[in-house]
Design a protein around this nucleic acid. Sequence first.
DNA 1: TCGGGTGATACCGCCAGGGTATGACAGGGC
DNA 2: GCCCTGTCATACCCTGGCGGTATCACCCGA
Lengths: 283, 283
Amino acid sequence: MDTLETRELRYFVAVAEELHFGRAAERLGMAQPPLSRAIQQLERRLGVTLLDRDRRGVSLTGAGEVLLYEGRAALDATSAAARRTRRAGGVDHPDRLVLAVKAAGSHELVQRLLDAHAAQPDAAELEVLPCGICEQEELLRDGRADAALMHAPFNNLAGFDSEALMSEGQIAVVPTGHPLATRPALTLAEVADVPGLPIARWPRDGVYPPGPGPEARDLTQLAQLIALGRTLAVVPDSARAWLWADHTAVPLTDAPPVVTHIAWPAHSRSRALAALVRTATQL
Amino acid sequence: MDTLETRELRYFVAVAEELHFGRAAERLGMAQPPLSRAIQQLERRLGVTLLDRDRRGVSLTGAGEVLLYEGRAALDATSAAARRTRRAGGVDHPDRLVLAVKAAGSHELVQRLLDAHAAQPDAAELEVLPCGICEQEELLRDGRADAALMHAPFNNLAGFDSEALMSEGQIAVVPTGHPLATRPALTLAEVADVPGLPIARWPRDGVYPPGPGPEARDLTQLAQLIALGRTLAVVPDSARAWLWADHTAVPLTDAPPVVTHIAWPAHSRSRALAALVRTATQL
DNA sequence: TCGGGTGATACCGCCAGGGTATGACAGGGC
DNA sequence: GCCCTGTCATACCCTGGCGGTATCACCCGA
């Protein structure tokens, strides 16, 4: 049983994502024929059909979907190996940690963590890597970050080690001037089906959940959509920090609490990371 | 930043494990010079020294240890991708699950799980893969198994999704005829330092914990050591099933409970696996 | 019917990766 | 001190695999 080469996985993932040999080849910086041949060889070696080439396009078979998912994980693990090795032996301080923090997250908790960490006598250098709404998991998996602040249940903690740091309620952010903005408190049921004000959606595990609300890629988009009176958002209490003048926050009485965790790759054996986690849990 | 090739990782892991270029080359089925060159190229590309070649042997640098650990994880992920893809598209039934079960585990729970699973109307084919004392984690990681029964705190559940299935106390297994065998119950403190009867040790995460007791690789070795009066063992209550006539079980009043989990690779999206887990949790 | 677009095939050239032979160097036995 | 042994590095060659170009086969829509 011969093992898959990284190159083959890269090629297949590109084709599976593009569903088009020409575009995939372009993305890979190569010509289309060798790419076609490489995929055929891969299918032969695995003894499995990965792609259905009907007329009018390419589509994934069941096995192809499995390989897309597992192959991405393997490629992430491979680049994590390279990155972490480089960092471990780099000229810069080997005790250097990268903490991925959602740019929209609570500034206050991060500040307290940074201060407490810096106060440690033998603190490792700590770099903060701001990231998008649900990007932390990818950063941890492919080694660009050593730890991340995640927010259950929005982030998926499966596959990582983690410790809970704090818990908070949620609020509804509605356009100032909307009738709901005058209410002292709301329930999830009350904000679920407001005519003309559907709940905004943002990516979870890379895809947007279904629903009528508009899609927001980052916080600025979301804030603008709210200010324009197009949507309302359900967000953690600490999000009050970034509210605009055109936003009004209304507490939700029955929303599930949002738990902020510090998460890191499972089985990590770094002493510097262990120290950071200890500091975080003692905040 | 060019990506590492599977081949390079295989080569490095072989050298790092053997700490000897010649033996590693033999294991890889190749000659030593190209292996030396490949490792040099790898070090150049990473910009990091991985191995210290002093006279009289090769040793790992810090970066080398990181790459050994991360590289193994990446290789596991790669072979898992190949295995799961083959299985997903294989000629055999695609809805086929492999469950890793410690050969020394409770037969009764496994039997109940198998029966309940078989009773499901659309049950996937379920293969039981017996394995050694702490082998489940490796089997899950490299794709040879889809799920495993694990026993916290003996197995490390980090990096997997899991659900607890049952909890049980622990017993001390002592040679029949030993003074302790007459006691109705014992505490951990009482069995910790019995003169002439040290507690047996078995591998955890691949290495034996330190201690005076003899090392046991599998259950038969352990059972024999106890029967010979050379050691005592602290094991879950369900281990009564495999006791010999020369063994006596004594309940431990203060041992931490052993929790049996069903565990599976994080983020798995297989419907067949989800059904198995549901069945297991409803036992 | 023809042109555009897709993936597959044919064929070629190059170089990366592997093999063999040998070197450099340290340690141990006598 | 000498030589032998064991180890990894270097030098050199050669082959096969990978990628490139040109082209085909096929399906569509105009």
